[in-house]
């Protein structure tokens, strides 16, 4: 099982600032094991979605050039304190994870 995401959402003026830290190795498939000289198999998040207050706000596709333990930041207009934020990712091995936070 993967570790939980850290999701923080704060109202700043007329928008909510959403920061997401995912816990994932984001293995590119380019790195080689120095002992065997074989590449480590690619293992990376391919898709994620962000919902605020039950509405889809961000839908993303990602490749191997996203850093290990990815961090993303978004701004959502009209989000209010108390709105639920739901983030879901899925990687190239079919593993997935969903975590929630509340806009403050």
């Amino acid at each position: 099982m993967s570790s939980p995401m850290k999701v923080r959402a704060q109202v700043k003026g007329d928008y909510a600032d959403i920061k997401i830290l995912m816990s994932h190795p984001m293995e590119t498939g380019q790195r080689k094991d120095p002992k065997t000289n074989q590449p480590y198999p690619a293992h990376f998040i391919q898709q994620f979605t962000v919902e605020v207050g039950g509405k889809l706000v961000v839908q993303s596709e990602t490749g191997t050039a996203i850093s290990t333990n990815p961090v993303f930041g978004f701004k959502v207009k009209g989000a209010k304190a108390g709105d639920k934020v739901v983030v879901k990712w899925q990687d190239n091995k079919g593993e997935s994870r969903t975590d929630e936070a509340t806009v403050s």
């Binding site: 961000v58 993303s60 596709e61 490749g63 191997t64 050039a65 996203i66 850093s67 978004f74 701004k75």
Partner: peptide, 29 residues
């Protein structure tokens, strides 16, 4: 990232009030 083995790093679609504003952290070879 032009010089990466696979240049496309990520694509984001915005809807329902999401501003066209995104912060990411990239790997660059």
């Amino acid at each position: 990232v032009d010089k990466n083995p696979y240049p496309l790093a990520a694509a984001f679609n915005f809807s329902n009030g999401a501003m066209a504003d995104v912060a990411v952290r990239l790997k660059m070879g």
